[in-house]
Design a protein around this nucleic acid. Structure first.
Lengths: 186, 186
DNA sequence: GTTCAAGGTTAATGATATTAGTTTTTGGGA
DNA sequence: TCCCAAAAACTAATATCATTAACCTTGAAC
């Protein structure tokens, strides 16, 4: 391997994530990214097809991180609602730890930035089995979708600064999910 | 009034909305916008401070449109859950009719594009009173937040192409909200 | 030491938002 | 009727992007 590489795809991706998280998505330019990595801008194109492809990779990493954060809570002690509450808590915690990249990943305005939706849906199947314990098998898919919607929607409204009228958001989140599960349990 | 204006802020805004909705947010450039309006790009700056300000105005219009679409259902016949279901249906319908601008409005990745959050929260107060009929006064704020989260989250996941495993999304949406309301009603 | 290909650089292109300075238009006052 | 002031447009220029093409640089293998 002549000419040892100064950078690689991995470091580009993690640096991009950090940069986005600290400066905001709009501030991410390949110029700035290259400067931080100590390299000229066109060099990045040896590892990344385009800025769009880079952002899509960032989004894929976000989803992987998110699922890595919540999956361990699938097989924990307690009944289904208890485990779902733990998953919901971990879900929100992850979003709070990575607010900008989380928001970017779930931003639908640019279709090219979306990871493969089929892959996405597949990762969620184990959670459907858990939800089935609450809603019954028949309704497990719509029940899961509502749960995902509730978690995602709450977190997004929070991150968008739209839940600022006071009150404890932690308990509001848990209360809402508990109510949702109770409603399906009937 | 010397030199009658060829454009005005209003037509810039509506054209921008149309352009975003038809071509996607990323495709909106001031050049293209100016060309459609039959004017050179710098002329836009007489009416709009910056592209960011224009997008914020688009978002404000989106929120106004959304609330205009759901508010009429506040005072309709039936009990509170029935009225909330009508509101939820109208909410989702609006998002489906304006998918791109709805997504843009709720995209938190760029803080400068957000309309005044205080204003936002104020607009939602009448709905809290309705929610109180289901949850009781004490819990009306968290219960409302969960409802908004559920509606918004569901719609966003839909628009982001993340609910593609089949099944009837219309009934999944309504079922989930019904379950949520039932859970609070206990 | 020559070769060769991976990795990096320089230079250039076209699009972008934005600003400064200039020109065009026209209604109201002379 | 003519002029003029100011509103509203325009031209020109700048800086920053992402991206591409063409050219160097390195160092391991022969």
């Amino acid at each position: 391997m002549p000419y040892p590489a100064q950078i690689n795809r991995e470091v580009i991706l993690t640096t991009a994530c950090e940069l986005i998280e600290s400066e905001g998505t709009a501030q991410l330019s390949l110029n700035q990214l290259a400067k931080i990595l100590g390299v000229k801008t066109p060099s990045l194109y040896r590892y990344v097809d385009s800025k769009t492809a880079l952002l899509r990779a960032v989004n894929e990493a976000t989803f992987q991180g998110l699922f890595a954060a919540i999956t361990p809570h699938l097989d924990t002690p307690g009944d289904a609602p208890q485990r779902i509450m733990r998953i919901a808590t971990a879900y929100r915690a992850y979003a709070h730890q990575h607010p900008v990249t989380y928001g970017l990943a779930y931003t639908n305005t640019i279709a090219e930035l979306r990871p493969d939706p089929v892959e996405q849906e597949r990762a969620v199947i184990p959670f459907q089995a858990l939800m089935a314990e609450v809603s019954g098998e028949t309704d497990s898919l719509p029940a899961l979708r509502g749960l995902l919607a509730l978690m995602h929607g709450f977190v997004m409204l929070e991150l968008a600064g739209q839940l600022q009228r006071g009150g404890d958001l932690d308990t509001a989140y848990l209360q809402s999910i508990r109510a949702y599960l109770a409603g399906w349990g009937k």
